[in-house]
């Protein structure tokens, strides 16, 4: 198990695209980000930190 190459980040970050094809997954990633942003804003307003 020790001869496995250790990842070296951020230099090796680009290799994610050798696993995740952006042509397929870039828009789903953007939509997930949008859902997360809406959820965060929802919570912030729900706890009363939004402008009243």
């Amino acid at each position: 198990m020790s001869d496995v190459a250790k990842p070296n980040n951020p230099e090796d970050d680009w290799k994610i695209w050798l696993v995740v094809n952006p042509a397929t997954w870039l828009m789903p990633i953007f939509f997930a980000l949008l859902v997360l942003a809406i959820a965060v804003h929802w919570v912030v307003f729900a706890v009363g930190l939004g402008w009243q």
Binding site: W14, I16, W17, L18, V19, V20, P22
Partner: peptide, 19 residues
């Protein structure tokens, strides 16, 4: 071929724009 089908060059090029 990589799991995603991209070559190393394509992955590096896309990552530059992504950053």
């Amino acid at each position: 071929q990589s799991l995603s089908g991209l070559t190393d060059q394509q992955a590096k090029e896309f990552h530059e724009q992504f950053k």
